[in-house]
Computed example of a mutant assay.
Amino acid sequence: MTLPNILCVLRLLAAPIVAALIYKGEATLAATLFAVSAITDAVDGYLARRWRQISVLGQMLDPLADKALINLSYIAAAAAGPLPWWLALLVLARDVIILAGALLSRALHLGHDLLPLAIGKISTALQMILMVVTLGSGILGVNTFAIPEALIVAVTVVTIASGVLYAGSWLLHLVARRQPAP
């Protein structure tokens, strides 16, 4: 197994630990482990490209690890109180839509893997930034209302937009596959 894939596996294993720490109110430990895990997201992709170690396993592990880290953290933060439930459920719904499209494509042999879109990467980055800010406010003892509303709005808008664009990409591919060849 390559180092980039090992980093993905470590991020995947860290996700439930981060969520448990968030839920228990261990903001410093949760923030540290979340930040290190988020950094590995950039590092594993960089190393895979730089060392030419891009693999099918890595292409599956990387988004799975990201989704596990983000979704479990958001659910824990909503359950513990610093983030609203509607936001955690929105982030989860987007990822369920993306995952359902990918699984359905494979099951129907449509040959369409949902390639990463720029807005998807922006969405993931903003979601991670919001979690770091949320955990940081917990470390500093700042009231949860100190989380910038603009950041919550940005995460909401970009999460919705990326979900719509991924769903649209999948639907366009499905329609194109049903068109008779000229």
Rank of each mutant, 00 (worst) to 15 (best):
H173T: 03
T156C: 08
L115D: 12
R106I: 11
D66L: 10
L151G: 01
L126E: 06
D113P: 09
A125R: 01
I97F: 12
A167N: 04
T156E: 07
A146Q: 10
G141A: 07
S37F: 02
T40H: 04
A76R: 02
R11T: 07
I122K: 02
A48I: 08
I98L: 14
G101A: 05
I152W: 04
P4Q: 07
L140G: 13
L171H: 12
Y46W: 15
L72H: 01
R49M: 12
N71K: 04
L72D: 01
S123H: 10
I129A: 14
M131I: 13
L89G: 02
A35R: 06
W85G: 10
I98D: 00
S169C: 10
A14F: 06
L174D: 02
V155I: 10
R106D: 07
L151N: 02
I98F: 05
Q53G: 06
L72M: 14
A27F: 13
D66P: 03
A68H: 02
W86F: 12
K24Q: 13
A93M: 12
L33E: 00
I54A: 13
A154V: 06
P182Y: 04
L29V: 08
L21W: 00
W85S: 05
T124C: 12
P82W: 01
V36W: 13
A93I: 05
K24F: 13
T124M: 13
N5L: 08
G45F: 05
D95G: 01
P84I: 07
G101I: 00
T134S: 11
P116Y: 06
I39S: 11
A146C: 07
M131H: 04
A150C: 07
A80D: 10
Q127A: 15
V91G: 03
L12P: 05
R94N: 11
G45S: 10
A48R: 00
T2H: 09
I97L: 15
T2S: 15
R11W: 00
V164C: 11
G81S: 11
I39D: 05
Y23Q: 10
L108N: 13
V43F: 05
S169V: 03
P182F: 01
R49W: 11
L108I: 04
L108Q: 14
P16M: 06
L110M: 15
N143F: 06
L64Y: 02
V96T: 10
L135K: 02
G120E: 04
R50G: 08
H173G: 12
A15L: 07
L110S: 11
I70G: 01
L29T: 07
V175Y: 11
L115N: 11
N143G: 12
I6T: 13
Y166R: 03
I17G: 06
G45A: 11
A77N: 08
A146T: 13
L99T: 15
N5W: 05
L103S: 08
A78N: 04
D66W: 00
A150P: 05
G111A: 12
A154W: 03
L12R: 03
W170G: 03
W85L: 11
I147K: 02
D66T: 08
I97R: 05
L33N: 01
L69C: 08
L3P: 09
L21D: 01
A102P: 00
R178P: 06
L114V: 13
L171V: 14
I139W: 06
I152P: 02
P63E: 02
V153M: 10
R94F: 07
T40E: 02
I39E: 05
I129V: 15
A176E: 15
